[in-house]
Design a protein around this nucleic acid. Structure first.
Ligand code: NAD
Ligand code: NAD
Lengths: 256, 256
DNA sequence: CGCGATTTGTGCGTGTCTTCACAAGCGCTT
DNA sequence: AAGCGCTTGTGAAGACACGCACAAATCGCG
């Protein structure tokens, strides 16, 4: 996804801490550290050890130190990290020093909840526009914002310099919406619809899918159950699932 | 997280395809395959090639084949995979052959959206109970379910054999709720609150955090911007971030 | 019945991520 | 000023994941 090297940046090992090439895994953890740090700051702590911070973020302390070392941040040996400094560094690297504008598309069940969520504002984002296709919803005012028609999406996205688009429409409409976002110059999309989006190179898509999370949990449930229930015949662990047998007959009684 | 080996199952390489030890990465992709397969089935397709299915799921075809090979599923060389058979196999492995009961705790902004979401039912889950702490909300009926008081959580969870708990309360209450879920025998938790939960061994927690997703996107936005704006002096690529300096000065100019 | 077209299953090289373990650095105390 | 305890930063090894490329298997057709 981020493998392309635009010929404009010919591999110059810039010495200044412009933007280090962080491992994706590290990037995904930085926000967690950031939240823990904010909690610490609110409670008046000025320094924190890697051990403590790692605990608060739920990770191994060596991993945390390596993560932080990647962004060149210097803690002090024997003491720990300066909380305020670390917050500034992480926020800088994550690009949170400028408040990014978010467009929310699809003001239905989920969209309403998102529109009313204060977690946007408190974490460096600003909902700049709401869109929907339903004429009934267009014009509705939510949290001081008027819902606009999705036909205006591309134009408004350009005008308002929307940085991130959030898709909360049914899956059937998601690709169309994504296309419009891209047409409006949006290069980052957060997709709540259960479908795979196709976007040009250079556009990042992240997906949040409740059902997938539940199914992953279900797998572990299933495995736990089959472990503890090995001796007994209960649970669905024994049906040998002969592999070559016909596909029919999942006789385990789903209602649906 | 799943490192513990309960002494009941002493490493016996069971020959029957009880439950293969799937790599986590594979488990996370299976639900995606499953959805693509359901789409195919609805459209009347009976077989599908790895290439096609991989495209629909947005992954490499070799990866898909390896994933499927892990669960012992057999496609037919020269033909592809039997759609219906594959659906059954994946659903079996994910433990979706039995409908799992879900308890939703915190019926606020987000909780309402979740409670009204039909994606639960269509993907093998059943919302069995709703809980909240606010006396105003307790007693409210949503989608045929009456909101109960969170004090009943542990008891009801046990009685109704709740398999998965979904936490949609403010972060401050999440740990307490998690404790009650665990007390009620729940061993899988999906947490929407922005905080780290501490749970006993054997309990799985997955977290969905909107703000983290946005911040990851923000990072990539930032990096894209700094790449294209290298020649100029604009953008925040040059300020050497002296380490002790404040983080102000968001004077960046997105050119879109 | 054999052959070519097609597609699966997988061995293997490569890269990324994680974790351990420890030297180097820092500050406090004596 | 030297010693000591504590914590960071990182080398190295292992675990995991990815994707290429190809042999093996199957089908359809002549
Ligand atoms: N409700 C939830 O809790 C929940 C949870 C997880 C995922 N999701 C997913 O989020 C999406 C939205 O869910 P929901 O429950 O809010 O559905 P919803 O039907 O309540 O809302 C969808 C909204 O999108 C609008 N819409 C439809 N087509 C559009 C288009 N082309 N352009 C702009 N807007 C359009 C509709 O008018 C409607 O207002 C779905 O894909 C759903 O699967 C929902
Ligand atoms: N609203 C969103 O779109 C959104 C998006 C992402 C994450 N979240 C997170 O989801 C959580 C809920 O968000 P929300 O917007 O629905 O908040 P909300 O305040 O609207 O709802 C929270 C609900 O939890 C209930 N509650 C409080 N303490 C409780 C307890 N101890 N036991 C049971 N219930 C309790 C409250 O009565 C309220 O009904 C928050 O942690 C929030 O950060 C929300």
């Amino acid at each position: 996804m981020s493998q392309h090297r635009p010929p404009g940046a010919p591999e110059r090992p810039v010495a200044v801490p412009a933007l280090p090439d962080l491992p994706e895994a590290t990037v995904a953890r930085l926000p967690e550290y950031l939240r823990a740090l904010h909690n610490l700051a609110e409670n008046g702590h000025e320094t924190v050890s890697s051990e403590w911070l790692a605990g608060a973020a739920g990770v191994n302390s060596a991993k945390l130190r390596k993560d932080l070392s990647h962004l060149g941040s210097y803690g002090t040996r024997g003491v720990g990290y300066d909380v305020a400094l670390l917050i500034d560094q992480i926020e800088y690297v994550l690009g949170l020093t400028q408040r990014r504008s978010v467009a929310l598309v699809g003001v239905g069940n989920l969209g309403h909840a998102l529109a009313g969520y204060d977690g946007f504002a408190t974490r460096g984002f600003r909902i700049a526009a709401l869109f929907d296709a339903d004429p009934v919803r267009v014009g509705e005012e939510i949290n001081g914002l008027v819902v606009r028609h999705v036909d205006e999406l591309s134009r408004v996205a350009t005008e308002e310099s929307i940085a991130i688009g959030v898709i909360a429409t049914p899956a059937a409409a998601a690709q169309r919406v994504a296309d419009r976002l891209v047409a409006g110059g949006v290069t980052s999309i957060l997709n709540f619809a259960p479908c795979v989006l196709t976007v040009p190179d250079g556009v990042d898509v992240r997906k949040v899918d409740l059902a997938i999370e539940l199914q992953i949990l279900s797998f572990h449930e299933h495995r736990k159950a089959s472990r503890t229930a090995l001796p007994a015949v209960g649970e669905a662990a024994l049906p040998p699932l002969p592999g070559s047998l016909a596909a029919t007959n999942p006789q385990e009684a789903i209602g649906t």
